[in-house]
Design a protein around this nucleic acid. Structure first.
Length: 274
DNA sequence: CGTTGCGCCTGTTAGC
DNA sequence: TGCTAACAGGCGCAAC
């Protein structure tokens, strides 16, 4: 379940391998691997050169020598892989891009929530991504503005953290970790939280994701693995997510799991009170 | 209009 | 032991 740090790790790996490569063939092997909003079939990029790879939140895009971008979302299980041509196909191989130098860039995705698409340039971002808010590491990120937006919502903080139109890049795991770290109950109403407390959550989000980014960058010395999207999560460093019934590392109270918006939320009932 | 809920998908796990 | 059902979750859209 790649969130911002994992997607950024993939982006860095891709940038190392693919900048300057030309796309010689495009093979779409599964219809769901192309987003319906794509302005054209992916085969359209045949012959294009990859100039740059960018990211906003969990959205990646390849800048080409074309008037549009190749956008990618990893969904739940999407991975990029670099292989030499002729390497055996993965079971869940969805898209094959044959590059120059006998290399292939492959999009592999077991659960098919991930996709690729072509999207027109809208300034620096693809049109498809314009509705997605800047993430917390983006120079465009407006902290006081985001705090205001949170407070104008009438919902629970956990839901707001997952709303990619307020602030992008946070998924279920880092949402729980941010709330644990800032000692805020996931069901706190955003319109009742003080600006200071929302600020505290955002600071925690930044810290938690920075740490994951460093781990993703250092845990493997092979860029190849990073490109594979296997940087993954470092479960040993998670304090709340997936730790139901385990002791809170701050106070030893058992971590609880509740459901918010059909998603599990893990929190410490003693450190994080309503 | 803003918020909530559902469906998409498949490997793994829990329960009968 | 073997099968079925529930579960996991990002996103977009439908419904309230």
């Amino acid at each position: 379940m790649p969130e911002l740090p994992e997607v950024e790790t993939v982006r860095r790996g891709l940038a190392q391998w693919c900048i300057g490569s030309s796309i010689q063939e495009v093979h779409v092997l599964h219809p769901r691997a192309t987003n319906l909003r794509s302005i054209a079939p992916l085969e359209e990029i045949t012959g294009a050169t990859i100039e740059r790879i960018s990211r906003r939140g969990k959205f990646l895009w390849f800048e080409l020598d074309r008037a549009y971008f190749l956008v990618a979302h990893l969904g739940m299980s999407g991975q990029f892989r670099i292989h030499s041509t002729g390497a055996p196909d993965e079971k869940h191989l969805r898209i094959r891009l044959v590059l120059n130098d006998h290399q292939e860039l492959r999009f592999v995705d077991q659960r098919t929530f991930g996709w690729l698409a072509l999207s027109t340039r809208e300034g620096t971002a693809p049109e498809m991504v314009t509705g997605i808010a800047p993430d917390i590491f983006d120079p465009l990120f407006d902290r006081p503005g985001v705090v205001k937006k949170f407070r104008m919502k009438r919902t629970e903080i956990k839901r707001a953290l997952l709303d990619q139109h307020l602030m992008s890049g946070v998924g279920n795991i880092y949402a729980d970790e941010s709330l644990w770290r800032s000692k805020i109950h996931p069901q706190s109403r955003t319109d009742e939280l003080s600006p200071q407390k929302i600020e505290r959550v955002l600071t925690a989000t930044e810290a938690v994701m920075s740490k994951a980014l460093v781990e993703g960058g250092t845990s493997f010395d092979s860029l190849y693995i990073n490109v594979n999207g296997e940087s993954g999560y470092f479960e040993h460093s998670l304090e709340a997510y997936g730790r139901e019934h385990e002791p809170c590392s701050r106070c030893a109270t058992q971590i609880r799991r509740i459901v918010i918006g059909a998603r599990s939320s893990h929190f410490c009932p003693r450190c994080q009170r309503l």
